[in-house]
Amino acid sequence: MTHATSLGLDSRKLAFWTFIGSECLLFGSLISTYLIYKGKSLVGPYPPEILDIPFTSFSTFDLLMSSLWMVLALAAVQRGDMKWAKVWLFGTALGGLIFLGGQVYEFSSFVHEGLTLQRNIFGATFFVLTGCHGAHVTVGVIWLLTLWVRALQGKLGPEHAMTVEITGLYWHFVDVVWIVIFTLVYLIQ
């Protein structure tokens, strides 16, 4: 039963915006914790010794591009072009997977170089902050793949444009958060 809403906004979309507002506080608290503890490590490795900016720049670029694929996926769904919708949905998920692969590589090489959760406060704040973001990307990838499979099964059509739009909202949000993290953690040391 769909009836007109008071604000003229889809309720799911409105709910999702409130969710994003809440998530801002979550990441805001984690980022604040990172900044408060910046330079407070008692032992190394310290950030400049270990952060690989060129590598992470590539991951960031990949995630940014996936946001573009997401825009294209939504546009395709909205105009009912399910062939391209499948391509772009999968492309977005693949972008997320590549980012996650990069994070797995980054984490394991850091551990290899002696930076663990327990090693120092930089390790603790870094892994928890970027790990929390990575968990969000993982949820997004699962979500996108679910939509992609449903598109393959022919169960996703233009009538589900709002679902795809909300998925896109989430994906763009996760992307924006990463740009903030990348700037504050990697670029401004």
């Binding site: 408060i36 503890y37 407070k40 008692l42 959760l117 327990q118 120092n120 406060i121 603790a124 704040t125």
Partner: peptide, 14 residues
């Protein structure tokens, strides 16, 4: 659970 020191001065926390 994982032995970090977010609130422990001995590990740089506060």
């Amino acid at each position: 659970f994982f032995g970090t020191s977010f609130y422990l001065p001995a590990g740089g926390g506060n």
